[in-house]
Write a protein that binds this DNA or RNA. Structure first.
Lengths: 137, 137
DNA sequence: CTTGACCTTGGTGTTTACTCTAAGGTTTAT
DNA sequence: ATAAACCTTAGAGTAAACACCAAGGTCAAG
């Protein structure tokens, strides 16, 4: 599979794929005799992973760290790999907790809102949004 | 409270606060006779909200939309405000689900890893990371 | 009454994550 | 065998979210 084909399949630009390779997020594929990149299933899996990680708010640098767990596994002990994985997992857990507070606040907000066709002047949205902060401290 | 004081209290830079005001995320405060910005509790609450939203991965544009619910409430019906709030809540729910899949995958990864001092060559990290994608489709 | 710490606007610089352009080589179809 | 549609590298340009700087005004302390 050449770069254009893969890009189309995962819904990214060819430029983005070359950029990911340069940044160490996508492993360098084999080249054809004429120098064209030749991709396989592994690369597609990597790209799906990258997109999902991006969607939940990881930066490319963070994603690179996650993928490095995999790429460099020969150079690290099993214990090191396990520790890094658990550290990343805790980070994800924190983000989940934060988002759940957001979710609760928005639910409360919607409940308090009467939902009528009248202007929302007196809806307690401001109060609720400010309470979001209150919940955190 | 002047800009430096507020910035210190919320742990942001004065430049960031002026930038947020310019972008419509922080409401413009009153000015002293000499032109200094005068902030109150409301502004601090807004900033805490902005930071928490940023931490969970919202862009400034998305945060502006959330805050617009509040700022423009006089111009919209209660129903509109409620609908927008529920839409944003659903978006948050999706992100939570996505992150929970990540969390599960990383847990599984750590479990499968033996945790020994041997090289991690044979740990099934690659498989687990690729499975993350598999779970999604 | 001046020194130092604050504030103002306006502008330029930085990083991230790409996108676009240039100048050319390759492949495929007709 | 040539046009259309791909690919290559290198480098310049862009948007977001600030950071930094210059030139000047303000305020509290000594």
């Amino acid at each position: 599979m050449r770069i254009g084909e893969l890009a189309k399949q995962v819904g990214m630009s060819t430029d983005a794929l070359r950029y990911y390779e340069q940044q160490g997020l996508l492993s360098a594929p084999q080249r054809s005799a004429s120098g064209y990149r030749q991709y396989g299933r592994t690369h597609m899996a990597q790209l799906h992973f990258i997109r999902r990680a991006k969607d939940v708010g990881f930066s490319l640098e963070e994603i690179a760290e996650l993928l490095k767990i995999n790429f460099e596994k020969a150079e690290h002990s099993c214990q090191e790999v396990k520790d890094l994985t658990l550290k990343k997992r805790d980070l994800v857990a924190e983000r989940i907790a934060e988002l759940q507070r957001f979710h609760a606040s928005l639910s409360q907000l919607a409940e308090q809102c009467c939902g009528s066709s009248a202007p929302a002047q007196h809806c307690s949205i401001l109060t609720a949004l400010e309470d979001i902060d209150g919940l955190n401290q």
